[in-house]
């Protein structure tokens, strides 16, 4: 079992999606995360073992390497593609309840801001951390966040902003959420955001990179 799980993890770390995928060149022609995950499930490995022992640690390694600037966004996104090709085989087990996610995470770029790349990177890493991600998109009003929290009261929430002007909308959204849902954990991120700003507006956590957010959520459910 360990061997196949290690192979899946290696595929995800290297961004090897499937057999026909030419990347990375040194794994050309080999099975990718897609085929190996299918094989693992067909051969009695449980879906939560695939998730907990291959996908999550592999994406954690990818996130750590990104934080240390050993890889860049394109390589991280290639790993995400590989992870998604494995995850599609796990989806039916999530839907049936046989495999449980770590929790729910609602994410969106705040009102007035149309930037989505940073948000998408964080979404992808958090999904790779075993969480169900509810992505509200860009230019998300406070009301839309509140509606999503109302429907998923246990969820943690992530707010993204790229501009100093739209960052101000974070403050308003955090205040309204905390007013009605004081226990909801709110993570914030984006180029102009700092720890100081996080504390000032009453959010719970700030991370300059996606893996920091994954690690924070992990300790919430530990």
């Amino acid at each position: 079992m360990d061997e196949i799980l290690n192979k899946i993890a290696r595929c995800i770390q290297s961004g090897k999606i499937d057999k026909v995928s030419p990347y990375p060149p040194d794994m050309k022609g080999e099975d990718g995360a897609d085929e190996l995950t299918k094989f693992a499930l067909e051969n009695g490995i449980k879906p939560d073992q695939v998730l907990d022992l291959a996908l999550i640690p592999a994406m954690e390694t990818v996130g750590d390497r990104f934080s240390r600037k050993e890889i860049y966004v394109p390589q991280m996104l290639m790993s995400a593609k590989a992870m998604n090709s494995a995850m599609k085989h796990l989806k039916p087990f999530f839907q049936s309840g046989e495999t449980k996610r770590k929790g729910k995470f609602i994410i969106g770029t705040v009102a007035g801001d149309l930037h989505d790349i940073g948000k998408n990177l964080v979404s992808m890493m958090i999904e790779g951390g075993g969480w169900e991600v509810i992505d509200l998109g860009v230019d998300v009003s406070t009301e839309k966040f509140m509606k999503a929290i109302g429907e998923n009261p246990q969820a943690a929430v992530g707010l993204s902003a790229l501009l100093t002007t739209t960052m101000e909308n974070m403050k308003k959204t955090v205040a309204v959420i905390k007013d009605s849902y004081a226990d909801t954990r709110i993570l914030i991120g984006g180029a102009p955001v700092t720890w100081e700003y996080c504390e000032k507006i009453g959010a719970d956590f700030y991370s300059p990179d996606p893996q920091g957010a994954v690690n924070y959520l992990k300790q919430l459910v530990a």
Binding site: P74, K81, D116, N120
Partner: peptide, 17 residues
Amino acid sequence: SRQAMEAGDLLTGYIYD
């Protein structure tokens, strides 16, 4: 870029960006 990202292809979307 938006279409690629919405289709789940973040890498292609990022490159178009």
